[in-house]
Computed example of a mutant assay.
Amino acid sequence: MIYDGHCHVASTDFIPDAFLGDVAYGMHRRLDLVAAGPPLDRLHESYRAQHRDHDADRLVAEMDAAGIARSVLLVPDFGYVMPGQPDLAAMAQRHHEIRLRHPGRFWVYLGADPRRGEAGARAFADLVDRFGLDGMKLYPPCGYSPSDRSLYPYYEVCRSRRLPVFVHTGPTAQSLTFTTSEAILVDRAARDFPDVPFVLGHGGVTDVEVSSYLAAHRPNIYVDTGGFAGSPVVGGWVAHLNRLFRLGINHKIIFGTDWPLNQLTGGLQGLVGEIRDGGEVFAGVSQRDQDLILRENLLRVLSPASAAAAGPTPGRQRSGATA
């Protein structure tokens, strides 16, 4: 049984077209440095066409083919930096409807932005309670530090409901800032809220040295592998993941793909097949550690109610505040 801790609904209903265009622009610039690539408008339209899975039907089909039982759907809040995104209440409602359409397949982490203030924290709490949401998603490249004190009312909501906080780290769309997405910036918040699990999105792929150091020494910090197949890493992603799984922090690594990025690299079935059956990714890694990475660690950071939704799993134990 495999759980994917890092997915998005590939839909222009949730991801602003401005963000898709920004990503296409970055891709266009990189391609032009190597060889003449397709025109920017064609790249943008191609990327937009990949984001029409509005009810997650295609994602579920990919999960079925890959043998992924459940996934976390992340709902970023781009409202302060990009036009065209529905409000958080509308996106929470839609993601709730997607869960009803595909029962037993998804957990949902809702976005937040500290500039919405304490009223935003109260609205976040209301949406969590109304729809039974499972965590919070932060996107610091929008212009704030994950340790900004204005986020503390949100963290109090997460602490009271035992929800994990998923924090994007590393590079992103060209127009957003990278300086607030450094992994080390999570440290103060993790220290001030030791019983809240913090998951460093992409922490197993970018800024790995700092992310793995934090995971090794902060009991409530975890890293995920989101975006591994699309990141420029030495020797390719297969060798990179094997190096990551030999760092001694497998009790803190959560498997994640960052779908829909995988549409550009052959889909979930090929990626998961290479991980599960290829032999190299888990070479020298014990079966127990493989189970932790592919399933158990995600269950550990989820609230007891959210973890219970996955059904009984031998040896399950919540360890958000233990090393």
Rank of each mutant, 00 (worst) to 15 (best):
V233L: 11
E280R: 13
A215K: 02
A215G: 06
T265N: 09
L294I: 09
A239L: 11
G256E: 10
G256S: 10
G266E: 01
L247P: 04
I253E: 09
G236Q: 06
V205S: 08
T265F: 06
L247A: 07
P232M: 11
E274I: 12
V223F: 08
L244W: 04
N250C: 14
G201E: 04
V233A: 10
P260C: 07
G227A: 01
G248I: 02
G273P: 00
H217Y: 11
N250H: 14
W259N: 05
I221E: 05
N220T: 03
F198M: 03
Y213M: 15
H202L: 07
G278K: 06
T257V: 14
V210E: 09
L241P: 01
R218M: 15
K252G: 15
S212K: 04
Q263C: 12
G226C: 06
I254Q: 01
D289R: 11
R243E: 14
E274S: 11
E280G: 06
L244P: 07
S211C: 15
R246A: 12
G226W: 00
T225R: 03
F198S: 10
G201S: 15
A229F: 00
G204W: 01
F255H: 01
G226S: 15
I254R: 06
G266K: 05
G203L: 12
D224W: 02
G226N: 06
V223P: 05
L214M: 13
A215N: 07
A215P: 03
T257K: 07
A215T: 07
V272R: 00
L264F: 08
P219K: 09
H251A: 09
T225P: 02
I249Q: 04
D277W: 01
G203I: 09
L264Q: 14
R246P: 06
G230N: 13
A229G: 10
N242H: 11
T206D: 09
G279N: 07
G273S: 15
Y222H: 04
L268H: 02
W237P: 11
W259T: 10
Q269D: 14
R276C: 03
G201K: 07
L214I: 03
S231R: 03
L241G: 00
V208T: 10
L268A: 08
L247D: 07
G204M: 00
A216V: 09
G235W: 00
G266C: 09
V210G: 04
T265I: 12
G204A: 11
F198T: 01
P232L: 06
L261K: 11
G236F: 09
L247S: 13
N250R: 12
V205H: 02
I254T: 13
A215E: 02
K252V: 15
R246I: 01
L268Q: 14
G279Q: 07
H240Y: 10
V233R: 05
G279L: 00
V199Q: 13
I253A: 13
E274T: 14
G204H: 01
V281Q: 03
V281H: 08
